[in-house]
């Protein structure tokens, strides 16, 4: 079980989450102005690294929040979590840290 630190609920098993995918894909802000190539990139192209990967999961069986997760795809180790808009590689992370989450799996 991968254990993901939901910014709200704390450490939970990944079976409570639904995997959405590559978090680095930005939906074109101005849809009409985006080129076909930009749309293709957003919808079809994936970063798919071997190692740290920023991805979105939804805590679908919990608080239903979308969570950005930095996870090593080689080891499944979760390195950081935050809100969808956080850039976890830059070291920034969500306002709601796990300290305030009391009911997580961790005792």
């Amino acid at each position: 079980m991968i254990r993901i630190n939901c910014p709200y609920c704390g450490l939970r098993g990944h079976d409570e989450f639904s995997y959405i995918g590559d978090a680095t894909k930005q939906r074109p802000a101005s849809p009409a102005d985006a080129t076909a190539a930009e749309w293709h990139d957003f919808v079809y192209i994936r970063d798919n690294p071997r190692g740290p990967h920023q991805e979105i999961w939804q805590h679908i069986q919990g608080c239903r929040a979308f969570v950005r997760v930095l996870r090593n795809t080689l080891t499944h180790e979760v390195l950081a979590t935050g809100l969808p808009q956080d850039d976890l590689l830059a070291g920034a992370s969500g306002p709601a840290k796990t300290e305030e989450a009391k009911t997580g799996e961790a005792s």
Binding site: M1, G13, D15, S18, Y19, E55, T73, L74
Partner: peptide, 13 residues
């Protein structure tokens, strides 16, 4: 297993 992985091992769910 539903998530990106290169780990050649899966999980219990």
């Amino acid at each position: 297993d539903m998530y990106n992985s290169y780990a050649q091992r899966g999980n219990t769910p």
